[in-house]
């Protein structure tokens, strides 16, 4: 007790008793406060995460842990059929998913935020309408759109035929060329409210004088946007980009609902989340534990690493603004 009290560094807001001595509750009291959360969190979050790393470096036969395998599981993922093909394909789909989402969802979100910025009546309703799909479970969104896009009974193709666009009434989710773009669009339909709200908040924080000054200097509306608004939106663009990246590379429920666990048709919508699920629980075989853990670690390192790099890049750009 005494030793513990001497070792702690006084903090700014340290609680003091009336006598001026810093008050520290007895260990038994502290334990009652801290242990439940500590045990729950350690057992179900920290221990499994550490184990995943550990598992990935061992050879497995079913659930029997064999010898230390070094990086063999990682090598297998990159060289053993079918993972050598599926891993890169899934990765490429995730990358397309991200690029498509940035181009469509986040650009449209920015456009809506700009248009709504000075919009009068109905602004609150429009904002609420655009963000409503975001309340719906991604799994429900996936199932709903797969019904709406059904080639025979789906209302979307019926609508296209009703307005004379028969040649557009395609089996959207059944064609390897259109399936992934449709998944990207449906995802954008669900999430577009998020960048819109982020950009709206950022726009509201830009002082009106900046735009007036630009106008007085003879800048066109486009120049004012390109030279004043856009640079000042850098922090919001950074946050939206990083969160989009994390969300897209973790996609699971929406794609599972629209394309099953294999990313049908013919793997054209397969993403890393589905591949991980299949390696771990569906078709991993006796090596499942080691390989799926290696894949989980690879995904984590990539997502975490890129997020950190992107965050520091946007920080640097922000600093250049000041």
């Amino acid at each position: 007790m005494v030793q513990a009290r001497e070792l702690t560094v006084p903090r700014r807001r340290a609680v003091r008793t009336g006598t001026g001595r810093r008050y520290v509750p007895r260990w038994r009291v502290l334990a009652v406060f801290l242990l439940p959360a500590f045990l729950l969190y350690s057992a179900f979050i920290v221990y499994p995460l550490v184990s995943a790393l550990d598992y990935s470096f061992f050879e497995w036969r079913g659930i029997r842990q064999m010898g230390f395998a070094g990086l063999d599981n990682y090598r297998d993922l990159l060289s053993v059929y079918p993972y050598d093909q599926q891993l890169w394909r899934a990765f490429a789909h995730n990358a397309l998913f991200f690029v498509g989402t940035m181009l469509i969802q986040n650009t449209v979100g920015l456009l809506f935020a700009l248009l709504l910025f000075r919009y009068g009546r109905g602004k609150r309703f429009l904002q609420a309408a655009f963000t409503t799909p975001y309340l719906v479970d991604p799994l429900v969104v996936g199932y709903l759109w797969s019904l709406l896009l059904n080639p025979t009974f789906g209302p979307i193709n019926s609508l296209l035929e009703a307005v004379g666009l028969d040649s557009w009434a395609l089996p959207w989710l059944g064609d390897t060329r259109t399936a992934l773009p449709i998944v990207i669009l449906v995802n954008a339909w669900q999430w577009v409210g998020f960048p819109m709200l982020m950009f709206s908040a950022a726009l509201a924080g830009i002082p009106a004088e900046y735009h007036e000054a630009a106008r007085v200097d003879g800048a066109s509306a486009w120049q004012s946007f390109r030279r004043v608004t856009l640079p000042l939106l850098t922090p919001a663009i950074g946050v939206v980009s990083v969160l989009t990246f994390i969300g897209n590379f973790n996609a699971f429920g929406l794609v599972y609902a629209m394309a099953g666990s294999t990313g049908s048709p013919a793997g054209s919508t397969d993403v890393l989340g589905l591949l991980f699920y299949r390696v771990a629980f569906v078709e991993g075989g006796v090596e499942a534990i080691g390989r799926s853990s290696a894949l989980a670690v690879l995904m984590f390192v990539f997502i975490f690493g890129v997020s950190l790099l992107a965050t520091s890049y946007f920080r640097r750009r922000e600093r250049r603004l000041v």
């Binding site: 179900f44 499994p48 995460l49 995943a52 659930i63 771990a280 984590f300």
Partner: peptide, 17 residues
């Protein structure tokens, strides 16, 4: 630290736990 770690990383160990 838990705020930054994806809990899905631990899916397989959680299953066996």
């Amino acid at each position: 630290a838990g705020l930054m770690l994806p809990i899905r990383l631990g899916l397989v160990p959680i299953f066996y736990l």
